[in-house]
């Protein structure tokens, strides 16, 4: 635990450096250049997000012709309402949310439990088992054999194909194991003397104490699930209703068909499309915005954890 504590300290921005330079002319020039470069790069990182946002809330006709540049004009939110009529979007949102929640929950539970078990030195065959699990980080058979295996197991065109292969995550197991090893062993031993079994100890002691690291891997797992689209494309090709939101967005982006093909038909809907003067560009950008929003919402919480995760990961398992 000390280790983690120190990491936290270490990651504070460098306020402690006390030695002051005498400000020479060179220093001033250096600072101007330095600040400019960093602020420019930061702007470049942020601008696309902002540009996307203003293009989804501006007058659609201006968006279509590329008139929205630095600020929104004619603000409205009809595009977001109109998304309800975009074909298949609802099912993709459901799939993405479901896989993110279920996939992350199972992965975190499994990583916590396995991470705990591999710290037990009296396990039969422990050394072998640990290596057996961890070595899979460094090789893979390749895409095609993996796909054929998934297909043989009946996990293609099957929602569980998103979940089951991700349950055992070796890297996360290492993170949890390293963290648990820093928990004082006495806590566990005393419970053991009291007659508690491994499950009880795991549930009552290990799980609550490892929450920081579990939060870290949960965040990474959730972002990974939310962002992945190639597995959708490879495994679910026969079942479009199982496409994730990201893959759906890719399909919209690469589609050249006209708007009416993308939207549900029907008089009322057509009217709403006309009202909003929707066009392909606005629909694509609005779907993208909806896909980004969850990430932006959890990002402030993530920041606390991911730096910690990166540092513990640097300590080898």
């Amino acid at each position: 635990m000390d280790e983690v504590y120190n990491t936290k300290q270490a990651l504070k921005p460098q306020k402690k450096r006390k030695h002051r330079y005498k400000r020479t002319k060179g220093d001033i020039i250096f600072n101007i250049i330095n600040y400019t470069v960093y602020i420019l790069f930061t702007l470049i990182c942020v601008f696309p997000f902002y540009y996307l946002l203003i293009n989804t809330i501006s007058a659609n006709e201006l968006v279509r012709t590329g008139q929205i540049k630095l600020y929104p004009i004619g603000i409205h939110f009809k595009n977001y309402i109109a998304l309800a009529n975009v074909n298949n979007l609802g099912s993709s949102v459901m799939v993405s949310v479901a896989r993110t929640v279920i996939g992350t929950a199972t992965m975190v539970l499994a990583s916590a439990f396995v991470g705990y078990l591999v710290t037990k030195r009296n396990m039969w065959g422990r050394r072998f088992i640990y290596r057996f699990l961890i070595i899979t980080m460094y090789f893979n058979a390749g895409l095609i054999p993996w796909y054929l295996t998934m297909s043989m197991l009946g996990l293609t065109n099957n929602f569980w194909g998103y979940i089951i292969p991700g349950i055992v995550a070796p890297y996360n197991i290492i993170l949890v194991k390293t963290y648990i090893e820093s928990i004082p062993a006495e806590l566990e031993e005393s419970a053991f003397v009291d007659g508690a079994g491994y499950f009880t100890i795991f549930r009552k002691i290990i799980w609550p104490l490892s929450k920081p690291i579990l939060a870290t891997i949960a965040i990474f797992g959730a972002v990974g699930h939310w962002n992945s689209f190639t597995d959708s494309m490879i495994l679910m090709s026969g079942k479009p209703e199982l496409y994730t939101l990201q893959y759906r967005l890719y399909i919209y982006l690469s589609s050249t068909s006209n708007l009416s093909a993308l939207m549900n038909s029907g008089g009322a809907v057509n009217k709403s499309i006309l009202d909003a003067a929707l066009n392909m560009r606005t629909v694509k950008l609005t779907v993208a915005m909806v896909t980004i929003i969850p990430i932006l919402l959890v990002y402030p919480f993530m920041q606390r954890y991911f730096e910690k995760g990166i540092m513990i990961g640097a300590v080898k398992g």
Binding site: P13, Y38, F41, T42, C45, N55, F229, K284, T291
Partner: peptide, 29 residues
Amino acid sequence: AKVSRMVQTFTTIPNFISWVLVYTFAFAL
């Protein structure tokens, strides 16, 4: 410290979006 923190925060965000979304940015820009 404020500027440094801000730079760190905003330059890390792009790492957390998928390549499809990066492509959307490319498309938009």
